[in-house]
């Protein structure tokens, strides 16, 4: 009976191979850097803002401004990731495989999101609802992109899907509150924002538990750092600020809500950055059976 092998921590690598991470121990992926992370950060934030802006109607900050701001955030994310691709001159090839690729689907959704949001900003009837749906689909595509990356255990955990969607919504709600820092947002939207923030916190806890067995120790440590920020600064603090605003009933309410928005959005961005940059460990190479040499028995 072969024991399940584990790597030795005692062995020193030859100096010439010191930089070579290939082995049984997982190592951080280097294929996607901050430019790719920015796509998930700003794409989710912008999509969430478009969703919340449409839901807010014309209340508070002008709807066209919010929609255009959301679209700008999405565009900045896509621009960032475009800087990372090796052959930017053939970037249009990204549209070729919507049949199976969530990256291609994200691109197609973005292509539809731009005119829909511009039309909504221009006041074309019915387009605000379309922009809302497409913004939600966009953040869904982004979440599915990470889920399809089978090489990274922290990304392929199924609960990451609702967690990333809810992160985008919480960030978008936060951005709406920031934009309305001088005028209080309607109670229903604040409740929706608080619900997204709390749901995100709960999803984080569930995701972390489910992903635990597959995570490399350093990936788990990075996620736990980000998770603490997500729970304290991204969940508890916004909830307290919103509650304080609701209870105080004075002129400081918009400011408290805006601060809640800052906390929710910043914590979400930090979490996604950590997820891509510091928790993107592969699973190394597994050797479930060790070669049996010589006589057995």
């Amino acid at each position: 009976m072969q024991r399940s092998p584990r790597s030795s921590k005692t062995r020193e690598k030859h100096p010439a191979r010191a930089e070579d991470p290939y082995g049984p121990d997982p190592w951080q992926q280097k294929s996607w850097d901050a430019r790719a992370a920015a796509n998930f950060i700003f794409g989710g934030m912008g999509s969430g803002l478009i969703v919340f802006a449409v839901l807010s109607g014309a209340a508070g900050a002008p709807l066209p401004v919010l929609l255009l701001a959301g679209l700008a955030l999405v565009g900045f994310g896509l621009f960032s990731v475009a800087l990372e691709i090796g052959r930017p001159l053939r970037a249009l090839n990204v549209f070729r495989n919507p049949r199976t690729s969530w990256m291609a689907r994200e691109a197609w959704t973005a292509l539809a999101l731009v005119p829909a949001t511009l039309a909504a900003a221009a006041g074309v009837p019915g387009c605000d609802g379309l922009a809302l749906v497409l913004a939600f689909v966009f953040v869904y595509c982004q979440a599915r992109m990470l889920l399809a990356a089978k090489g990274i255990p922290a990304w392929r955990e199924p609960l990451l899907l609702p967690l990333l969607i809810m992160t985008g919504m919480a960030e978008g709600g936060g951005m709406l509150l920031i934009a309305n820092w001088q005028a209080s947002v309607g109670g229903a939207l604040v409740v929706l924002f608080a619900a997204c923030v709390l749901a995100r916190g709960l999803l984080w806890i569930a995701y972390r538990r489910r992903a635990n067995a597959a995570l490399a120790p350093r990936a788990a440590a990075a996620l736990d750092r980000a998770g603490r920020v997500l729970l304290l600064a991204g969940t508890l603090l916004p909830a307290l600020l919103v509650a304080a605003g609701a209870l105080s009933g004075v002129g400081s309410v918009p400011l408290l809500q805006a601060l809640a928005g800052v906390a929710a959005a910043a914590a979400g961005a930090y979490f996604k950055y950590t997820l891509v940059i510091h928790a993107g460990f592969n699973q190394g190479f597994a050797l479930p059976r060790f070669p049996v040499r010589g006589a057995r028995g």
Binding site: Q29, W32, G86, K150, G151, I152
Partner: peptide, 16 residues
């Protein structure tokens, strides 16, 4: 000639 170098395949491959 089609690849844009997005490296999505690199993070999707469990075999590096």
């Amino acid at each position: 000639d089609l690849c844009i170098g997005c490296a999505y395949c690199a993070v999707a491959c469990p075999y590096q």
